[in-house]
Design a protein around this nucleic acid. Structure first.
Lengths: 203, 203
DNA sequence: GCGACTCCTGTACCGGCGGTGCGGTTCCCT
DNA sequence: AGGGAACCGCACCGCCGGTACAGGAGTCGC
């Protein structure tokens, strides 16, 4: 890794923590450069403006997020053959991972950007939309495999069912933060897991 | 209503729309007073600082939110005797209400404040927590009534089940905003409704 | 060894924003 | 007529995002 790349990553790390804690508008560049140990000029060498910082943060976050899902559900796929059982195991692993976060989930950058909407340019909104669509595609694929083997007790649109995974995670993060109960998120994932299990439970 | 109260409410209305659209940090006081047609001094006559504006916004929002839930689930309770059927009807009515919002759900202020955390004082965090607990109490009451009559096919904690309603709404809002599909929120509520129906479906 | 490029630092400056302070002024209520 | 509620007007502060530009240290190929 080149030296410039190192600095860039360091800025992004500091910025991600700050943005998730205080929101994007609540995070000042002065504060970021103080903690990173560079100057303002240095910051603007790496990012044209705050908007470009947001973009870089989002890309980084989504990439890491995708990797986590790849790992968890990939491992679940290896361990269990049946797509339903594999998905349920994946949710269990996800729940455990979320429960093990020391200070609770730090928050989702996609959600943060959603609640900042008009202050950003269209490109960021497009990235955000693409992230949500990636989640949808991922879980729709799983539900398609499941419905190929198991008949749901009630007919449900696979896209909507897939979105429900994201909904539960995003909603769980909000409720968890509001309640100041870090466990809540992991619990919500488990409740959803039980409901999915019931949906495909043989008559 | 006194004249001062009128102005105060007008500021709050303008502020709520702006905050939900651009986040709290992205909303400037100058912008609020321009749209409200008062001066900066006038604004600070009503609110000591931006923090107090946030508090007033939250109180107002939560009150309106509670009223909506009271109306919807109160009406559902009148129309149907069985607590399960009544709750399912309530979710249906809620879904319809959400689907009829012309530009989609404007966003939840509680969630906005969650993603702004450390920038606010403890009081606001406490109000936020209280809002989430109010939701929990409301829906736990309903699930207790339901479980008194119907046996769930899987044992689930009533608090966690109650939180699931808030989770689906909050998560649905985020996903809906990210996808730029206003329908998504209403659909997620309906998917949740189907899952609850299955949970209490007789064997 | 030289030039070019990367990766910054330093300094100066701008306008917007949150916020303070304080001296009016208008209008309604008693 | 007096007083408080509900503002207006204006001056001022420090922080923040952003611009502009000059310069310097290290690295690389030639």
């Amino acid at each position: 890794m080149r030296k410039g790349e190192e600095t860039r990553v360091r800025i992004l790390e500091v910025a991600e923590a700050a943005v998730l804690a205080k929101g994007f508008g609540g995070t000042s560049i002065d504060e970021l450069i103080a903690e990173t140990g560079i100057t303002k000029s240095g910051f603007f060498y790496h990012f044209r403006d705050k908007n470009e910082l947001a973009k870089a943060l989002l890309y980084r976050y989504i990439e890491a997020d995708e990797k986590i899902y790849d790992d968890i559900f990939g491992r679940a796929r290896e361990l269990v053959d049946d797509p339903l059982q594999s998905f349920l195991l994946g949710l269990k692993l996800l729940s455990e991972l979320l429960a093990d976060l020391p200070n609770g989930h730090p928050g989702c950058l996609v959600a943060t950007m959603c609640y900042y909407e008009r202050a950003f340019d269209r490109e960021i909104q497009a990235i955000n939309r693409e992230a949500a669509l990636m989640w949808r595609r991922r879980f729709r694929g799983m539900f398609e495999e499941i419905t190929a083997v198991h008949t749901p007790r009630e007919p449900l649109d696979v896209d909507q069912l897939a979105d429900m995974v994201s909904t539960v995670v995003e909603g769980g993060i909000v409720i968890s933060k509001a309640l100041k109960e870090p466990r809540a998120l992991a619990d919500q994932v488990l409740v959803f897991r039980t409901l999915v299990k019931l949906l495909f439970h043989p008559m």
